[in-house]
Every structure is written in C-alpha cells, then in structure tokens.
Amino acid sequence: MDIDIRTFVELQGVPFITNTVTTTWIIMIVMFAASMSVTRKLNMIPGTAQQIAELLMEGIHWLVDNTMGEDKMNFAPFILALSLFILISNFMGLIAVRHPTADLNTTFALAGITFLLVQYHGLRAKKLNYIKGFFQPLPFLFPLNLISELALPISLSFRLFGNMLGSIVIMIMMYMFVPILVPIIGHIYFDLFIGLIQTFIFVMLTMTFITLAMD
C-alpha cells in the first residue's frame, strides 16, 4: 500500500483510472454477482446464502424503520447497497489493497448522492416551505443557511476519507517497524472496527439528514 494513489490512465493530465477506481469496479461486480446469484432461485426453506441475505435485509429494515419511520421504508434498498459498498471498501485494507473509501473522489461521490437525495426529497415533501426554510429566521441569514447546507457533503465525505487515510498511514508505519504478528492487532482495530463504525456513522447520518429534510 502507498499513501499516494497510483494512476493507470491519465486524461489530459487528470488522473482518470486509478487503483481505487479498479477496486471499486471489482467490488461492484462482486456485489452485483452475489446479489444476482442469491436471488436467482429463492426457496421457502432458505439455504446458507439466502439466509445471510435475508438477515442483512431484515437488519436494514429494522434500522430504517427505527431511524426514518414506517413511511420511508422505500429507502431501505438504497441504504443496504450504500452500507454494503462502504463496508466492503473499508475491509479492503485486510488484503493489502487500498480502500476505495480512502480516495476523496469516492467519498465525495457518495456524499454527493446523499446531498442530492436530501435536497430532492426535502423539496418534494415540503414544496415551497423548503425554500422558505433557507430564509429563516431572518432573510439576510440566507448565505449562512446555504453554507451550513453545503457543509453536509463536505463533512460527510472527509469523515470517511480522513478515517480511512488514517488507517492506511498508521498501517504503513506499523509494517515499517514491526512487520510480523503485531499488524494483526492494527488490522483488527483500524480496518475492521473503524471500518464498521464509520460505515454505520455514514449510513446513520444519511438516514437522519434525509428524515430531517422531509419532516
């Protein structure tokens, strides 16, 4: 692993295909293939793969129901896909591949999806009142409201990016000084534990902000 991102293809001096992009593609293919093969033949008596999938589905349904409310259950598939992608990305450090989430482009794209969803659903649920909300409590506070709205994707993306960059930097140092056995502890804490917590925080914040904008 490296602190800098490796670029494979450049387009007019701008990195176009990097090692995080290829890892993202592989994760997408694996997730797509896994969900296709699980849902191909569904049985009343589920096999192991179907049981795991049902467990994930039920867990996410419980979480969405508790955080967003019964009327927003149609967000559950998006939340499940988002959390699985971030979770697998965060676990990539275990096989010495750079986490796609340790690339600002990936996390900013994910936070951008959340930002657009918040704006779209807020506008659809509250109509004119949503725009009026930007001019409250006083009309001249509009720039401040706009900045606080734009702070959401920035803080969301940098939270994930900063934590994963931290795990990369610390793991490199760990491998430099004690290359045997000790990095296992580091992997458990910085990849598994922090990865899980940060996935949960990203998904929870996404759900909370969408709910706040809609209600």
């Binding site: 934590n163 931290g166 930097v169 610390i170």
Partner: peptide, 8 residues
C-alpha cells in the same frame, strides 16, 4: 488519530 496521521 487525525493528529497522529498529520504528525506521521
């Protein structure tokens, strides 16, 4: 951890 990262 953030400050440790910047220090490293």
């Amino acid at each position: 951890i953030f400050s440790l990262v910047i220090a490293l």
